[in-house]
C-alpha cells in the first residue's frame, strides 16, 4: 500500500514536471538562444553576447558573413509602431463597443436577445482563415484600400467578442438589487450606472481591454489577409523574416515581445489585486 502510494505520488510529481517542461522549455530555449553568439547554428553554444539585441535596435551592424538578416532597423521599428497603433486603436474601439453590447444584453430584454448573444460569440469561434478571407473579399469588393485602417476594422470584428464575454462574465456575478438600492436612495439611472454599475464592471472592462491588446499585438492570420502590401505589423514582419531562415535576431525579438506581454499581464494582475 505504502509503496503504491509513494510510487503514485512520485509518478504524479514526475508527470507534473514533464507537463511544465513541455510548456516552458521551448520558451526558455528561445531566451537562451537570444544570447548565443553563434550566428549560424543556434544549437551550438559558442559564447554569450548582446549582439542580437544591439542589432535589432540598430546599435551594431550585422556581422559581415551573416549578411543583413534585418534589412534595416527602421523597418522593424516601423512594424512595432504599426502594431502599437493598431493595438491601441482596436483595444479602444473593441472595449467601448464590447462593453456597451454586454451592458445592453445585461440590462434590457429585447426581441431576439439570445440570438444576438450567439451572434456575438460566433466571430470568436470562426476559423481565423475564414474570417480573414471574408474580410479581404469584403474590403476589396466595397473598394476600401487595404492598410492600417482595414487591419483595425478586421481585428475589431473578433476582439469585440472577447471584450463582450469578459465583461458579461463580470456582469453575471453582479447583484441586481444593488441597482434597486441605489434608486431607492434617490439616484436616477445615469447616477446609478456611474456610481454603482461602472465601478463594479471596471475590472472586467480593464481585463477585456488587456486581453484585446495582447491578442491584437499577436494576431497574424486575419491581419495578414487585410494588411495589404505596404503595411506590416510586428507578427507579419517576423513571419517574413522566418521565410528567409531562422535567424538569431528573431530570438531577441521574441524575448522582447515576451517581456512586453509579461509586463502587461503583471500590470493587470497588480491592478486586479489592488481592487480587491
Amino acid at each position: 500500500m505504502r509503496l503504491a502510494r509513494i510510487l503514485g505520488s512520485s509518478g504524479l510529481t514526475f508527470y507534473t514536471l514533464i507537463f511544465f517542461a513541455f510548456i516552458y522549455v521551448p520558451i526558455g530555449l528561445i531566451v537562451i538562444y537570444s544570447f548565443n553568439a553563434d550566428p549560424v547554428n543556434m544549437m551550438r553554444w559558442s559564447g554569450f553576447t548582446f549582439d542580437w539585441y544591439k542589432q535589432i535596435f540598430g546599435l551594431k551592424n550585422a556581422a559581415s558573413e551573416a549578411a543583413l538578416y534585418i534589412e534595416s532597423t527602421d523597418q522593424l521599428l516601423a512594424a512595432v509602431r504599426t502594431s502599437l497603433i493598431v493595438a491601441a486603436s482596436t483595444t479602444m474601439v473593441a472595449t467601448v463597443l464590447g462593453t456597451a453590447a454586454a451592458l445592453a444584453v445585461y440590462r434590457f430584454s429585447f426581441f431576439g436577445k439570445r440570438f444576438y448573444r450567439v451572434l456575438l460569440f460566433v466571430p470568436m469561434l470562426m476559423p481565423d482563415i475564414v474570417l480573414g478571407i471574408a474580410l479581404l473579399i469584403f474590403f476589396v469588393g466595397v473598394g476600401i484600400s487595404l492598410g492600417i485602417g482595414t487591419i483595425i476594422i478586421g481585428q475589431c470584428t473578433f476582439l469585440i467578442s472577447y471584450v463582450f464575454i469578459v465583461v458579461s462574465a463580470r456582469l453575471a456575478g453582479m447583484d441586481r438589487t444593488l441597482e434597486n438600492a441605489s434608486a431607492d436612495l434617490g439616484a436616477d439611472e445615469w447616477t446609478t450606472f456611474r456610481k454603482i454599475i461602472l465601478p463594479q464592471v471596471m475590472p472586467g472592462v480593464v481585463g477585456g481591454a488587456m486581453l484585446a491588446f495582447i491578442i491584437s499585438m499577436d494576431d497574424l492570420v486575419i491581419t495578414y489577409f487585410v494588411s495589404g502590401t505596404s503595411t506590416q505589423t510586428l507578427p507579419i514582419f517576423i513571419f517574413g523574416m522566418l521565410r528567409r531562415g531562422i535567424k538569431p535576431e528573431v530570438n531577441a525579438i521574441a524575448v522582447m515581445m515576451l517581456l512586453f506581454s509579461f509586463t502587461i499581464a503583471a500590470a493587470g494582475l497588480y491592478l486586479h489585486r489592488r481592487k480587491r
Binding site: T177, N180, S182, G186, D188
Partner: peptide
C-alpha cells in the same frame, strides 16, 4: 419612479455597495 419617492428600503440581502 423609485428614486423620486420619499421612502427608503432595507433590503433582504442588505444590498450594500461592495465597492
Amino acid at each position: 419612479p423609485p428614486h423620486r419617492r420619499p421612502v427608503n428600503t432595507v433590503f433582504q440581502n442588505y444590498a450594500l455597495f461592495p465597492h
